[in-house]
């Protein structure tokens, strides 16, 4: 029995200091992604959630070129990208602008990689996510930025909700919709900067979309949906770290696979339930017609 446990929970998983860092920052990142995801799904900002980490990667490449900490470059590019998208978007629509900013950022990243031979493993870990890569990130920074993001979202909760659901109504109520949306984009950018080192630039967005989308199929109560989204994201990240440590394969893959599985389950469950409810309603209708 103990050998089975030993196989799953490899020695050192909880005792090595860098692994403890991983567990803590992984959890922080999952909580933030879960909360942000609620609004990403509500607003349909999936493309932005995908574009900011990918574009931020270019910043990391630039930082590597200059010999600066890659996370700083990452943060600069993802927040800069968020600001440009918010600035250029019109009437709440920003898919075209997102595509343009993303390609421009990646083009710049291509330039950086071309001008300088960046040490490849570092780039790989930023792309795919790296359990051990977290050791390079100051855990305090992650925690501070994480708390900042959560606090900002708590403060913005109601105006952001109103602006997302009915922007004209929000404007009539005196809410500055554009500024609120801008703040939200910057929060996504900041969260990106701390999520990418762990989950990877390619798949950070999966943690910001799938858990929240899954939660929306399970409950219609907004606060419960946020909680459910956070729970799914945290479990996803924990399992991913565990499996990734055991197999040595990239974390991002597991995060994407587990989060999508949760989404599939939730959606299937919703379909089953609504089918049952519909049939009950149909039966009622039928009885009304016959009587």
């Amino acid at each position: 029995m103990s050998t089975v446990w030993n196989a799953i929970l490899s020695p050192g998983m909880f005792s090595e200091s860098f692994m403890i860092n991983t567990w803590i920052s992984g959890t922080i990142v999952a909580v933030i992604s879960g909360i942000i995801g609620f609004f990403v799904v509500l607003r349909g900002s999936a493309f932005v959630a995908h574009a900011l980490p990918k574009g931020g990667f270019a910043g990391a490449a630039g930082a590597a070129l200059l010999g600066v900490n890659t996370v700083i470059g990452l943060a600069l590019f993802s927040v800069g990208g968020a600001l440009s998208i918010g600035w250029l978007s019109r009437r709440g629509r920003h898919d075209v602008v997102t595509a343009l900013i993303l390609t421009f950022l990646l083009g710049t990243g291509d330039l950086f990689l071309n001008l300088h031979d960046v040490y490849a493993p570092e780039i790989y870990s930023l792309l795919f996510g790296e359990v051990l890569g977290v050791s390079g990130v100051e855990i305090v920074d992650t925690a501070v930025l994480g708390i900042l993001c959560v606090a900002a979202l708590v403060i913005l909760y109601r105006p952001l909700m109103l602006a997302s659901v009915m922007s004209e109504g929000a404007e009539a109520r005196g809410i500055r919709v554009r500024q609120i949306e801008m703040c939200f984009l910057v929060i996504v950018g900041l969260a990106t900067a701390i999520t990418v080192p762990i989950v990877g630039a390619l798949l950070t967005f999966s943690l910001m979309i799938a858990p929240a989308a899954a939660a929306s199929y399970v409950t219609h109560h907004p606060m419960r949906a946020v909680g459910m989204s956070v729970a799914i994201a945290v479990v996803t990240v924990w399992i991913s770290i565990l499996v990734s440590y055991d197999t040595g394969l990239p974390v991002g893959f597991f995060v994407a696979a587990i989060a999508t599985a949760a989404y599939g389950l939730a959606r299937g469950w919703r379909n089953l339930r609504s089918r049952g409810r519909l049939s009950a309603r149909d039966r009622q209708k039928l009885s009304e017609q016959t009587s």
């Binding site: 509500l42 708590v154 909760y157 109601r158 105006p159 809410i175 219609h220 109560h221 919703r270």
Partner: peptide, 22 residues
């Protein structure tokens, strides 16, 4: 499937412009 009930939407009319969670 937006996680928002009818009463949540209506309640935003009361304090949707305030900061913080309800």
């Amino acid at each position: 499937d937006t996680p928002l009930r009818a009463r949540d939407l209506v309640a935003l009319g009361l304090d949707g412009h305030r900061w913080g969670i309800p």
